[in-house]
């Protein structure tokens, strides 16, 4: 079976009307059937929290939850997502209250440029729903499909572990250095 050489893309894009259930709200949108969930979330629903990265499945910036499981919205057709529950970063906070993951990321500096953050928050949310007390290795494993070019990942792992502790109702904070960094070594003149 080899690739046919004579296949031209369809000249006319066929459009569909579908209702996407995003963060518990119905969005009825009209879009070309070949558009991805990422494109329709941003362009059709106006939800721009989910980010475009590589658009090829390699970075995780576009991760959202589909029926509670992390998927890459750049590789899901919006048409395929109709009839399923979609969760994006916009649905994390409750009213004015940040989700513990968001609060932990903000307080610990686990987001720097912030471009990878929505995808990581959503992937972490799915992990914590399944495993309320993950080890550092389990957090790393769950986030293995999400690239971050800024933080070096340490803060991200710490923040997910802290958010997990908050969600379990524990009150202990990470050590002070986690917020402020360790003191600089003394420089002798």
């Amino acid at each position: 079976m080899s690739e046919p050489r004579n296949v031209e893309p369809a000249a006319e894009a066929s459009r569909v009307t579908a209702t996407l259930r995003v963060n518990g709200e119905d969005h009825t949108v009209v879009f070309p059937v070949h558009h991805t969930l990422l494109e329709v979330l941003r362009e059709g629903c106006g939800l721009t929290g989910t980010k475009h990265g590589c658009e090829l499945g390699e970075c995780g910036a576009c991760a959202v939850l589909l029926d509670g499981r992390p998927v890459l919205s750049c590789l899901v057709l919006a048409a395929e997502a109709a009839g399923h529950e979609v969760e994006t970063v916009e649905g994390l906070q409750e009213g004015n209250r940040l989700h513990p993951l968001q609060a932990a990321f903000a307080d610990l500096g686990a987001a720097q440029c912030g471009y990878c953050t929505p995808g990581i928050l959503m992937t972490a949310k799915a992990l914590l729903a399944q495993n309320p007390e993950p080890t550092a290795e389990e957090i790393e494993e769950a986030l293995a499909g999400n690239l971050c070019r800024c933080t070096g990942y340490r803060k991200i792992v710490q923040a997910v572990a802290w958010a997990a502790a908050i969600l379990r109702g524990e009150e202990e904070r990470p050590p002070e250095e986690a917020f402020l960094g360790s003191p600089l070594p003394e420089v002798r003149r």
Partner: peptide, 29 residues
């Protein structure tokens, strides 16, 4: 931005239907 090219999308519920679409549409399917 890397968008998909236009195509028709079919999502049959039965295997026989999928097989019939593939047989009917030829190389382009």
């Amino acid at each position: 931005m890397l968008r998909l090219p236009p195509f028709d999308f079919r999502a049959p519920r039965r295997l026989a239907e999928a097989a019939a679409i593939l047989a009917g549409e030829g190389d382009g399917a």
